[in-house]
Design a protein around this nucleic acid. Structure first.
Lengths: 231, 231
DNA sequence: CGAGCGGCTTGACCCATGTCAAATTCGCAA
DNA sequence: TTGCGAATTTGACATGGGTCAAGCCGCTCG
């Protein structure tokens, strides 16, 4: 593992405050690997052997059942994922695959649990991480149950436009078919709903989105901190 | 607070292993109250002032937006709820109301955070609790996104029948309209879908459900550990 | 530069669910 | 037991969104 990566990970909220020797212990057993796109990193249902930390690229978290498949979340650097499964030593609930060339640190979950049991500060950081993840999933569940497809897309675009400062013009960060799946609709529906949003002041040219009238979009999306807040 | 309740709470996984004086500290500031049915305990969006622990009764966790409303979960004794919000000191994401006469221990979240910061064992218990909650919500999100209304109901009945030993005859634990909302459908749909399940070997008389052919129900629900598992 | 493979869009159609309204049943209190 | 209000069921109907199929666009790779 290169030194720069090391520091980047060390600075994650999850690891920032833990003891040096404990961090070293985690890194000692860790693997650091690069992957091309479309590589399965995790199969849902398998034992949670590794905590994954994405340092570069993009990873899709998804789940399937009886031929159907839906994307549950996207992971962007620098983030850990599948923490809950690792801590509880239970099977992964979601699968993961790279969407772009990606680099991933893989920490054996047995090491994770061992250090977690001894390092109180680390345990606190894990609490924080889990609480945030929990709230994110609750928000997503609320989204799906309370909003229509049109509202979900509008809210999604509203959020994307507010990455950092508000940008009225931006590129969709993922393929539309994946965004559609994430938002709980088909690609065809996404296409049609996006079209409908024209009279909410949104135009799309390929992956390029322009928001001409933020207030009209807001009126459709009615974003709320409780469903869209970033915490 | 009576002694019996004290012990009951003390035996929760969340508190079982923490230090006596820390537990005492939590209980010192706690309120213990009984409520009639239909009382709002928590309004989503408000500050997370108290960790709630249900010792008797039933509580509905629900969320609303623009006139719509959906039930997110049911809490049964003995359980804590809204832990994530309390730990992160962020607004509640869900509202809560009693469905039956209920008794609730309310621990000021500031006390919770104070003890959490000092008691490593408590922090570990919180991790465990959060991880389990997280996985529960993920499972629910998968349910809603991957299954049809009919499958969701079938899986729900399948799970209810497996509370403890398998029971082919049991009572629905909540009003149908709430189950419908929990499963992401209208009461009318629930009624019709339940009717459809007759040829999967399920009959209903009021709240009383009888499963005549478990295998046929299983075929409709296709329950999986990853979506229905209890962990 | 051209072929071919995805991904995206569009149209036509359909189906699962939602909506609205009217019985009907249930739970409970007088 | 009776009677009321709420919950549930049922029917008729509407519609959001899915499905299927065709065409288009924009890549990449030979």
């Amino acid at each position: 593992m290169r030194d720069g990566d090391f520091r980047e990970i060390r600075n994650l909220p999850l690891f920032r405050d833990m003891e040096d020797r404990h961090f070293a212990e985690l890194m000692r057993g860790a693997y650091y690997q690069g992957f091309p796109p479309q590589v399965m990193l995790i199969h849902e249902g398998s034992k949670a052997d590794f905590l994954h930390i994405l340092t570069d690229g993009v990873v899709e978290l998804f789940a399937g059942c009886k031929g159907r498949e839906t994307t549950m979340a996207f992971a962007r650097p620098v983030t850990s994922f599948v923490l809950a499964a690792c801590i509880k030593d239970m099977p992964y609930l979601m699968s993961a695959r790279t969407l772009m060339p990606s680099r991933v640190v893989m920490i054996p979950s047995s090491d994770l649990r061992a250090v977690f049991a001894r390092d109180a500060v680390f345990a606190q950081a894990i609490v924080s991480e889990l609480a945030v993840s929990y709230r994110a999933v609750v928000r997503q569940a609320k989204n799906i149950k309370l909003r229509t497809a049109k509202e979900r897309l509008a809210a999604f675009l509203f959020r994307e436009a507010h990455t950092g400062e508000f940008e009225s013009n931006f590129e969709l960060p993922y393929e539309k078919r994946l965004i559609a799946s994430y938002l709980g609709m088909t690609p065809e529906s996404l296409s049609r709903v996006l079209r409908q949003l024209r009279d909410a002041g949104v135009t799309a040219e390929g992956a390029n989105i322009t928001i001409h009238d933020l207030e009209r979009l807001r009126a459709v999306a009615t974003p709320t901190a409780l469903m869209d807040g970033l915490d």
